[in-house]
Write a protein that binds this DNA or RNA. Structure first.
Lengths: 116, 116
DNA sequence: CCGTATCCAGTGAGATACTG
DNA sequence: CAGTATCTCACTGGATACGG
């Protein structure tokens, strides 16, 4: 995926391209109130394969939404956290969550997860 | 596309599934302050092929965001307009637009369109 | 522990032509 | 005018196995 330089018709499309991706909303959600290691994310999002998880994390890092810090020790550690820019999207995710819940309720589908 | 019954991990994903689609944000945007005929939409979004445009419109109709009214006369007319539910997403589109603009500005890319 | 490499299936979307 | 049909290709994402 390229977060940069696809041609968009509208800033909305640019915004959607940054947060659209199979596990991106979930990753961002989990990082809201804590930094996490790769394995912790993997455990929190078991359906994501390692390839998918690392791919989505790289996308988010390239877009400047997630910070990746490698701690060189044994065993190696990598810490993922939200950047300021990443934090700035939280209110929008929250709005999308509320709106999505309303939609699912209307379909009589009970809404999954979303901590809190 | 199916707006219903894909399994989502989070209401955010459900919400994104409703507005993600090549021309959906643009269609919604154009319908904010006016009802439009098919041809008018086609003229406003020239890059969309007829297949794509009618497909996206059907998706939006199935999700309950767009109302389609056929007026049987010669020549036939079809009027597309936003439903109440469709209107309820406007504030979110607006937030996405502002956030996307901020992102594009940071890349020194001038933001396209978005009327007003 | 933290990923990458390879292969493969399903879907999204463009080009083009045609219909009630 | 308002679409549908077909054909094609690129991209997303899953399964599995391997590497620093």
């Amino acid at each position: 995926m390229n977060c940069k330089q696809t041609q968009f018709n509208c800033p909305v499309e640019a915004a959607l391209s940054l947060i659209s991706g199979k596990y991106k909303p979930l990753i961002l959600w989990h990082l809201i109130d804590q930094s996490l290691h790769y394995m912790e994310l993997q455990r929190l999002i078991p359906k994501a394969t390692p390839k998918m998880l690392s791919g989505q994390l790289h996308d988010l890092e390239n877009c400047g939404m997630v910070h990746r810090e490698v701690i060189p020790e044994k065993p190696p550690k990598t810490i993922y956290s939200l950047t300021e820019f990443g934090r700035s999207v939280i209110p929008i995710l929250d709005a999308l969550c509320q709106w999505g819940k309303g939609y699912l309720d209307g379909l009589d589908v009970q809404s999954p997860c979303c901590k809190g």
